[in-house]
Design a protein around this nucleic acid. Sequence first.
RNA 1: GGAGGGAUAGCAUAGUCCGGCCGAAUGCGCGCGUCUCGAAAACGCGUGGGCAGAAAUGCCCCGUGGGUUCAAAUCCCACUCCCUCCGCCA
Length: 422
Amino acid sequence: MLDLNFIREHADEVKKALVDLNTTAPIDEILQLDRRRRELLQMVESLRARRNTVSKEVPRIKDAAERERLVAEMRQVGDQIKDLEAELKTVEERLTAALYEVPNLPAPGVPVGPDETHNVVVRTVGEPRRFDFQPLPHWDLGPALGILDFERGVKIAGTRFYVLKGLGARLQRALIAWMLDLHVNEHGYTEVYPPFVVNEKCLWGTGQLPKFGENLYHDVEDDLWWVPTAEVPVTNLHREEILEPGALPLYYVAYTPCWRREKMSAGRDVRGIKRGHQFDKVEMVKIVAPETSMQELETLVDNAEDVCRRLGIPHRVVQMCTGDLSFTAAVKYDVEMWAPGCGEWLEVSSCSNFLDFQARRANIRFRREPGAKPEYVHTLNGSGLALPRVMIAVMENYQQADGSIVVPEVLRPYMGGVEVIR
RNA sequence: GGAGGGAUAGCAUAGUCCGGCCGAAUGCGCGCGUCUCGAAAACGCGUGGGCAGAAAUGCCCCGUGGGUUCAAAUCCCACUCCCUCCGCCA
């Protein structure tokens, strides 16, 4: 959520940014509601002030007639207050609803462009392997090795679900454990095991609601929502908190499954395990002081790239242009791994700086000094990494002519020493 | 799921029966100061969040949302969460 004062004072700037973002938001309505809100507030507050002082005097007044007169007058004032408050409440509800629909603004320096074709490749690391045979896509490799079963996934849960089996399941578990250890031991993160369902407030806090509710699984009976990413429970750990001096920065890493209904993309990416309704992810979340967040984004991206480097898989870093930024991000980099079988760059991580956008929604603040005025923190997160696509990249990059898959060296201790899946 | 108890500031508690000098007392913690070579102790002063406003100031917040009243931490209704006991359970 943007600062209402900022919108009021920089309305033109905000409107221009919305054009760059290739989206719309009810800015004029916000400005108008804001004006009306402040008008009403002034009226209500002066009436309340009068009622407060008179009500305090009432019990001290000895003259019964005078007291009765004032009580009668205050009864009228009370009615006026009630009417104004009712309008104020309506205005505030509409204003809040409108503010929740305004996306974050792109940070200075973000390339301007209408869609993903204007994204910028920042760097490419590693040379794609040269094959002396035709590399296969994972949807051929996996079933042939008996480690990936699409049909039975569909049988038990429906389209876009799959089953990992044997060393396939083991490989994913190894990746999760290894990534968590890497981020904890080498990058300074604290491991978190959060609930995999959250209450509605959390989703407003990190920005999935109100705009992206149709992409979430929702349990009606208990009104719980299945997490679409660990970003939601982990960032919300500190919702409605004021962090004491010295608490920042906070670095968290969490493994969770992620659930997405993916209603919007039916028909796209239907083959393989690239886009399912349930997938595993290791997620890094940072909560930091505002002036450090841009530097923190750089190290966050590097932490994600470190996973690629250590796995020995070629990757590239892409900066999103304005038109391809998510609703909540001010700056966003994707890390993509090369997959030689399906012949595409796979997004394995998305690293964003949200500045104070989520902090405002979730009301996460900190103090610089004891007793200092609370300020909003900056929040960031990035995948470290998303499992199915790393599985794809490992399978396709490490495949051999006979259809077997070499286990990357760093994972072998987590695989009980297995060197080749065959 | 059943029965009972509870939610007040960073923490712990008082106030609620009986509405008004209670946006709130006390202790601890924390900050500043006095004393001290320094520290501890003692003593003194200070110490929540938010909104509107250029400011003065005003308004709101005693779990949340409603209601009654001139006036609500206090009375009424609903909800949420926590604790104890019982039931169920990996």
